[in-house]
Amino acid sequence: MKHFTDFASYNEYIGLDSPLDHDIDVGYYNPPTMLLKSEAVSVDFYRISIKINLVNKLKSDRTPITAVFFNSPTLIVPAGWDVEPTYTGMYVQLSKKIIEENRYLFKSYLDYGQHEALYLNEEEVEEISAVFRLMVKYYESEKQNYNVLLSYVNVLISLVEAYYKRQFSTDPKQYNRIVTQFQQNLIEYYDKPVTQIPNVQYFADKLGLTANYLGDIIKHFTQKSALENIHDFVIRKAKELLVENPKLNTTEVAYELGFEYPNYFSKFFKKQVSLTPKEYRMQANNKNRHEQTPS
């Protein structure tokens, strides 16, 4: 496997123009002058790559595709690639430094490359191409328009967000399976003794997904973040334990749910329910007694 730590060495390897900057690189693909077949590669930076009418010889289906692809420092392209010299497209390369310094500009899609490409329709290709023309313009003017260039990168990422929402809605069965598995794994988590509250990363690992990717799918289909879904489930379990297990005191309920500190459980419960655990138990017991009292 070949590993590249900078734009210059990677561009030279695959036949792209030399970068003008160490932290951001923008350009167009020119397949006749590029490396069309390669072994596995990895890069120590981020890439957003738009390829139009791409035919991958490694796929049994030779139908041309038009899509956005993502590479990140943690992603390895294990099979490499072997493509026809017929596609067109453009790319943006971003250093880890520029991502960290401008994290507010970038969303979670940069690690989506581990899961799926973003397929584009003709109108979306036109929109992205228009943004790219402006990006190239300000890229070639170098540092004097750096902030403008970053703003257009942010526009590109915002378009990607809109397109992913469209893709999620186009094939809901594929994503509903992930939502269902997440919900089932959440139920199963509490089928055994626990020592901590589960987090999004735990369920992402169970599903073989990145936390960002899982979170975006859960948010799209439930209108709540993955963490909000987890908290809602924990609250439901807490209410069940408080009402159905009267022998358990508040501290024991907290430990049953995986809270390390009972005081944190009480604050968490109060924030979510607007009652302390003791107040909720008392209110629920009073309600049950009232319902059981004959009129």
Results as ranks from 00 to 15, higher is better:
Y104L: 12
P246W: 01
D232K: 02
L54I: 11
T250N: 05
E279H: 06
G215E: 02
T250K: 10
F182K: 03
M34E: 03
T210D: 06
N11I: 07
K51M: 13
K192F: 14
Y112T: 11
S18Q: 10
P64F: 06
S141I: 07
T5F: 00
L186T: 02
T5Q: 02
I178F: 04
E279C: 02
S42R: 03
L227F: 14
T33G: 08
N185K: 06
I128A: 04
S266E: 10
S108Q: 09
P19N: 02
K271R: 09
K287W: 09
L36R: 12
S274M: 08
V43P: 02
P32D: 07
Y261W: 10
G215M: 01
E260K: 09
L257P: 04
E84H: 09
A162W: 00
E116S: 14
Y112R: 12
L149V: 02
T210A: 05
W81V: 08
F4P: 06
I99P: 00
D191Q: 10
L241C: 09
T5D: 01
R281C: 11
P85I: 06
H22G: 05
N212M: 05
D191G: 15
V200F: 05
L110F: 12
V26C: 03
K267H: 05
N145E: 11
E240V: 13
L75W: 01
R166W: 10
T74R: 14
K247N: 07
I65K: 14
M282P: 00
I157M: 09
